Amino acid sequence: MKRPTQLPDCRFTPDGPPDVYASSITAADVAAMEAFLAARLDEVSIRYRPTAPETRIAQSLYEAVGYQLDLLKDTLAVSKPETLKERLDLWNGLMQALEPWRGTPGHDDERWRLISWTDEAAPARARRRAAQRQRQR
């Protein structure tokens, strides 16, 4: 897919604090993102007629992101390793979608960042695996 012109103040989502994990994502996080995006859609709806291309693209993006938010919500009830990995991937995808809004009112710049780990034990597991690979060489 052809990428549109980059916004001048848009950059890659920074990594979040090292103590934020997929296991720490909550329903409140999802609700905050939904509210933020709904408010952006409302702004477009006020500015443009319902059939305008701007309204249609905003609605399309809202629906696509809304689907991801629904999938993320579905992962919150289960904390199995594969579900945490899915939650991490969905979260990071949403962070990319929210990136153009970084630094604007309502965007949670501190919380809405990329995460690297599924849970608190994941960094230690990764270090153990790396050490085992080094010993096997």
Rank of each mutant, 00 (worst) to 15 (best):
L69N: 02
Y67P: 00
N92R: 09
R135K: 11
F36P: 06
S23C: 09
E63D: 15
D74Q: 13
S45V: 03
S60G: 15
E110V: 14
L61M: 08
D19R: 06
I46M: 02
Q96V: 15
S79K: 14
T104D: 05
A124P: 03
L69K: 02
P81R: 07
Q136N: 03
V20S: 01
T75A: 08
D19G: 02
V65R: 15
S79F: 11
E86I: 05
T55G: 01
R127P: 01
P50E: 10
L90V: 06
P100W: 13
A122F: 08
T104Q: 13
R129K: 15
A130R: 12
M33W: 00
I25M: 06
I57Q: 02
S23V: 03
R127E: 14
L72K: 07
D19W: 14
S116P: 00
E110I: 11
T118C: 10
R133N: 04
F36C: 08
W117I: 01
A126L: 04
L84W: 09
T5Y: 02
K80T: 14
R135S: 03
A126I: 01
L84N: 10
Y67D: 14
D89S: 14
V30I: 09
P17K: 07
Q136T: 05
L98C: 09
V44D: 00
Y62M: 11
L94K: 05
L94W: 03
L90D: 02
A130G: 02
R40N: 04
D70P: 00
A32L: 09
A130Q: 10
E54M: 05
T26V: 09
R102N: 06
T75P: 13
I57K: 07
Q132I: 07
A64Y: 14
Y48R: 05
W91S: 02
A35L: 10
A126S: 03
V78P: 00
R102V: 07
R40C: 08
D119N: 15
R133D: 06
P100F: 12
Q136R: 10
V20P: 00
R137V: 01
R56E: 13
R129I: 10
R129F: 05
P105F: 11
Q59G: 11
T51R: 15
W91Q: 03
D119S: 14
G106D: 04
Q59N: 09
A121V: 09
R111A: 08
L41G: 00
L84I: 08
T26W: 07
D119W: 11
P14L: 04
T118V: 15
Q134I: 13
A22H: 05
P81V: 05
K73W: 12
D19F: 15
W112S: 07
S45T: 12
